[in-house]
């Protein structure tokens, strides 16, 4: 399965990519990212006056000689970021040519790989009617490769209930983190509430909105019955050029609304089509967005 998600060539390209978030992290785990707290690295950060209880070994004697006051030398602390990848595995994701779900899984794997490459921890969750851990706390490449198989085996089924499931994420309140949501957002569930919820818990968010070419540019005509893949719902429509035009206007409005919301909340947004290549998404849109370097 890992072979189908990634080929060797792309894996080598991923080696050189890393995820970037604009804010420093605050985590209990030591990792590869600068923390807002001062730590024990060799990288100088600042001075402060000595107060009783400080480690006297950190007193800067040169400064004492100059100012006759005890100053403590402070160094930057490096923390580990927990990147949570929320993969929408509702039935609607298993659709389109090329398949949205397949691209979504590849993206999830790519983001996880980049995360562990930055000495972060990565977790992948499948989100549909319930949330399930696909692979939790991946650290190191061996663990990643093992998790790829589990990721490939995740089925697409049921309806998408993003917000309800996100509330089930345990330990999300423990320190800063990153959440990467990969979904088509074709759900009545309130994705905005979900994002607000994650932001409340100081999560940095990347939203990958994925749609298939059929959804972006439907080709139906005449009297059709459109059956919802997620349930028993259907729509009887008389598809005319005007109907298609109205659909596209609805879609544009929908996507604009997502973009507007994300911009207001400082959420990175990647709006992609399932016929785009992984390289062009990450190296193109991801790079231009500044989340991948």
């Amino acid at each position: 399965m890992s072979g189908t998600l990634f080929d060797e060539g792309f894996m080598s390209k991923l080696e050189n990519m890393s995820l970037h978030f604009k804010n420093a992290v605050n985590s209990v785990y030591t990792g590869g990212r600068r923390s807002k707290s001062h730590g024990s690295t060799v990288e100088f950060s600042d001075f402060r006056e000595y107060t009783p209880g400080d480690d006297y070994r950190r007193i800067d004697w040169n400064a004492y000689a100059r100012f006759e006051k005890f100053f403590i030398k402070l160094y930057l602390d490096e923390k580990q970021l927990h990147t949570r990848i929320l993969l929408d595995t509702s039935k609607s994701m298993d659709f389109g040519e090329p398949n949205k779900g397949f691209l979504a899984k590849r993206l999830a794997a790519a983001f996880a790989y980049m995360a562990i490459g930055s000495l972060d921890r990565a977790s992948i969750y499948s989100v549909s009617e319930h949330m399930e851990h696909v692979c939790s706390g991946i650290e190191g490449r061996n663990a990643f490769y093992k998790s790829l198989e589990r990721l490939a085996a995740v089925p697409f089924k049921g309806e998408s209930r993003l917000f309800e499931c996100v509330k089930d994420i345990r330990n999300i309140y423990r320190g800063d983190g990153a959440a990467i949501i990969i979904s088509d957002l074709l759900t009545d569930s309130d994705y905005k509430a979900m994002i607000d919820y994650l932001l409340y818990y100081k999560q940095q968010i990347i939203l990958v909105h994925i749609l298939s070419p059929d959804e972006l540019n439907p080709q139906y005509s005449g009297r059709v019955r459109l059956l919802d893949s997620e349930g028993n719902d259907y729509r009887d429509l008389d598809i005319t050029p005007r109907t298609l035009d109205l659909y596209k206007r609805t879609l544009r409005s929908f996507m604009d609304d997502i973009a507007s919301f994300c911009a207001k909340r400082g959420v990175y947004l990647l709006q992609i089509s399932s016929d785009e290549s992984l390289e062009s998404i990450l190296l193109g849109k991801g790079h231009s967005l500044g989340i991948i370097s």
Binding site: K100, E215, G222, R225, L226, D228, S229, Y247
Partner: peptide, 13 residues
């Protein structure tokens, strides 16, 4: 009678 088509979601429709 309509011609039936399965779509990912009828949300946008």
């Amino acid at each position: 009678q309509h011609s039936e088509h399965v779509v990912s979601s009828t949300y946008l429709w």
